[in-house]
Design a protein around this nucleic acid. Sequence first.
DNA 1: GGGATTTCGTGAACAGCGTTCAAAAATCCT
DNA 2: AGGATTTTTGAACGCTGTTCACGAAATCCC
Lengths: 212, 212
Amino acid sequence: MALDREEIGERVLAIAEVLLNEGGMDNLKARTIAEQAGISVGSVYNLFSDLDGVHRAVNMRLLERLGAAGAAAMADLSQRGITDVRQRLLALASAYVRFVEAHPGSWPALLAFNRRRPTLTEPDAYEARLDQLFEIIAGVLAGGDFDLDDHTRRIAARTLWSSVHGIVTSGYAGRSVRRQADEIDQQIELLVAVFIRGLEHGGAFAHAGTTA
Amino acid sequence: MALDREEIGERVLAIAEVLLNEGGMDNLKARTIAEQAGISVGSVYNLFSDLDGVHRAVNMRLLERLGAAGAAAMADLSQRGITDVRQRLLALASAYVRFVEAHPGSWPALLAFNRRRPTLTEPDAYEARLDQLFEIIAGVLAGGDFDLDDHTRRIAARTLWSSVHGIVTSGYAGRSVRRQADEIDQQIELLVAVFIRGLEHGGAFAHAGTTA
DNA sequence: GGGATTTCGTGAACAGCGTTCAAAAATCCT
DNA sequence: AGGATTTTTGAACGCTGTTCACGAAATCCC
């Protein structure tokens, strides 16, 4: 009567995201969701197949938001007339760091969720959302005057993303809170600086080199 | 009578590791451990405070094994008279990839475990094990003729580690199985190549640069 | 409009989980 | 030997995700 089906679904997702963000995966409970949404436990399973389904849906929203944050950061730089590759890459990394800090529970929960099972089923939707980010990075790299063929640029974009991701997630696993931010920033700056210099001075990259 | 306390503890850990490796975190159940170890559920809690305690202990073993694998890879190269930085870094990365592949369930479980809660308690022991790895990488970097002060070298070592870690963990989250290995190898080769070139051509690194 | 039919929300019930703890078994000590 | 002490045990507790018969409500159809 008051809310139609879809609206309640959105409400459930909003509640679920708060729960995840506050207490991590363990805090996402069917009964809590039902209580806070003013529906019964059964109804939760009426809207979503599983709790996993709820979590997946929350994760989709997070990935969309992350992509939007990256795109917004680029749009902002464009508007300010900044095309420098280093600045753009740093802005992207910074956007990611801010995103992670803004989602202290739900983002780790997304990462943990993906690691729970060897992903038997469709990671397709996830990948699609992530490709959006790779596209942005690849676009920035295309703006530099490195001579990279499409394939190498694609690899480089994914490598940069994975590296920043590794730095951020490793960085937040331990250490005192204040040291973290500094260390992460330093690592990101080093990575970006080294990466750009490496690409500039890099001739042809071997696609299947001698691996020792 | 047959086994003393410590031996049973080891047995429990071995069982727990197999369970984790086969089915991830969800597969680590007190009753399963008890049954397979031939003891009662209560006894598991007699040996370890929690199931989390069991998992932590398994994780410690994994980190030790990882450190040993890295050290062994370096020892092997030394014995073969190989001092080339690129080859050493690739060998380290390769050792990590092989380690992850050899622990398809328990290693993701370790990562997921660390992400479950914002690590309220002591990550000290974890960090100590990881520092062992950073030392190895820093040692390799010191072997190159980049002029890096100690601080920058330390950051660079951690950055390299985090990047490889990010590449490997991102790489195994999706995609077809065969493409993964190739893509990961390519990303690692690009990372190492670019990193070395970047460090070679890098003058002084700004410790707190203008972040845009 | 009103009976038939389909749809949907409900919450008690079930199986399984981590964890506890009184009692039993084993061990130790004199 | 036998009391004191330690260790092991597994039934029991509270919580979890998930199901499903049931009844209410909406929808349909004539």
